[in-house]
Design a protein around this nucleic acid. Structure first.
Lengths: 159, 159
DNA sequence: TATTGTTATACTCTATAACTATA
DNA sequence: TATAGTTATAGAGTATAACAATA
């Protein structure tokens, strides 16, 4: 006799539940960063110094390019980022962190580290590291396979 | 020299990225279930036969009780669920799956299993099981700590 | 008085399309 | 012709409040 497939066995349920809890805490932790957790991600992405065009950042963060405009408007108004023309392509703009932006990013990172550790509280240190690593691997791989959804759709038609 | 804290090191980024990929595929896999992946979760939750009041289901699924009304309206219109008065508490309603609802749930589950395996493709079988288990443990624990957000907020003020 | 469920309203978030300036 | 970015509009999704029925 097989146990009834509970919702809690569902990967989508687990992902959604954990992300909801994370966002509830993260919103407090990054208070002061316009755009909340996503504004933080923009800062973090810009801090790398590579792929800092608005479009590249939008794609890596999974948001529409129009949303990126709004996010950057607010971050720029708050003095956390600057938009400078790219000398190599004058259509594009390079997003640079200001000094205040760097400081705010560091503060947000400290807060988020605590949130993450609190969220992963039920796991021991080894398990936390394992979860982080596995999740990151899946995330990185799924980002590289944006175009293969059709293949899966075909595969699914047989269900 | 420490490596710059990339966005991809962020747990929130990984969770969001994986969930986005999951939803993109899951929407196709559960086509035909009103409400998409969340309609499926309602069916799955109702199938357990326990905690099938609308409020209890809404809470376990992390949606507002008003949203549950809309979801059930559509599922009932499609003939997948029935709302029966709870004899023990005539304010509440028990959500029951119809025969068609059970069949649709099974079909959706088969599709979602394939989606999950495709998503976890970059991991070997042991790692897939580990990720599922760890994520589920975190999800179950975070659901039990809904009330402790304030404690964390206080803890975070020192950041 | 508190709780379950419904409805109506408003708000936020996101997606679409049209526009500019460059390439 | 195609691309980066902006703007305006509309749409989906969500939250808020008020209500009826019951505890």
């Amino acid at each position: 006799m097989t146990s009834p497939p509970d919702v809690e066995q569902d990967l989508g349920w687990a992902l959604g539940t954990v992300l909801r809890s994370y966002l509830r805490l993260a919103n407090e932790a990054v208070a002061g960063v316009p755009g909340g957790p996503r504004g933080y991600q923009v800062l973090s992405s810009a801090a790398s110094g590579e792929r800092t065009s608005q479009l590249a950042m939008a794609q890596s963060l999974g948001v529409d390019r129009t949303v990126m405009t709004y996010l950057l408007d607010d971050l720029e108004k708050a003095g956390l980022v600057e938009r400078k023309p790219d000398p190599a392509d004058r259509r594009a703009r390079r997003v640079l962190l200001t000094e205040a932006g760097t400081a705010r990013l560091c503060a947000a990172e400290r807060g988020l580290r605590k949130v993450e550790e609190h969220l992963l509280g039920p796991l021991d240190p080894d398990e936390r590291h394992t979860l982080r690593t596995l999740l990151q691997r899946v995330a990185l791989a799924s980002g590289e396979r944006h175009g293969t959804a059709c293949d899966v759709a075909q595969e699914l038609e047989g269900c």
